[in-house]
Design a protein around this nucleic acid. Sequence first.
DNA 1: ATACTCCCCTGAGAGC
DNA 2: TGCTCTCAGGGGAGTA
Length: 273
Amino acid sequence: MPELPEVETVKRTLERYLIGRKIVNVAVYYPKIIANQTKDDFIRHLKNEKIKEMDRRGKWLIFHLDHYDLVSHLRMEGKYFLKNPKEELNKHEHVTFLLDNGKELRYQDTRKFGRMYLFPKGVYLEEKPLNEVGYEPWDNRLTETYLKEKYRGKKVPIKTVLLDQSIMAGIGNIYADEILFVSHIHPLKLASQLTKKDCCSLIQATRMILGEAIEMGGTTIRSYESEKGVHGRFQQHLLVHNQKFCSTCDTPIERIIVGGRSTYFCSHCQKKR
DNA sequence: ATACTCCCCTGAGAGC
DNA sequence: TGCTCTCAGGGGAGTA
């Protein structure tokens, strides 16, 4: 389940191989992956486009091309691999990009949740779905004042609001638990009840945890691995998600469902008020 | 506007 | 062994 650090890792790995490469041919085996184009248009537009630059916005991966921007969300299980085109296609590889160096970039997605959008160059930030993505964790405009304002009147648990991409982008279910643990905030505390100090802690914890995770190449948990077999090492650093006992006080970690998502927390270290 | 639920998919693991 | 059931969860769509 790629969250911001995993997508950043994929971006950094892919750009080393893809910058300057031309897309010679494209094949789409599961058209639903392509969200805002027909399969034929998607293929037609991408042929002969050169990959100029890679980018990331929240959990979205962006390929800047000559005349288009390709926006890709990996959702739960999306992965990119570079393979020899002769290698047999496996049943979870749904989109392939033949490159001018004879290699093939393949998009694999077991559960087919991932989506790709293709936009004429320059407009992707103004169009759905990127237009409503909130600040990056390191954006200077992300302050405790901003968060407090966004959380005002929100009668939903902070855990749920951390997953709202329109406020702060890039946090998923695993890091949300980690961020709340480090911030000593109970996942069920209502967003509107957060103090300025809570908001300050959240921002600091988010930057620290996501930053460390990026340095370690993302988390490998369940099905996620970054492409090229680069396994993230952050999993062994998870403090609360999927853990049995609190690393601070040894209290058994509790698991509850919040907003339909598995949520782990320490009832001793994380108080509602 | 806000806060819900449902849905998309497949594979792993549990239980019988 | 093999069946059925539950769970994993990001985010878009639909609804009250």
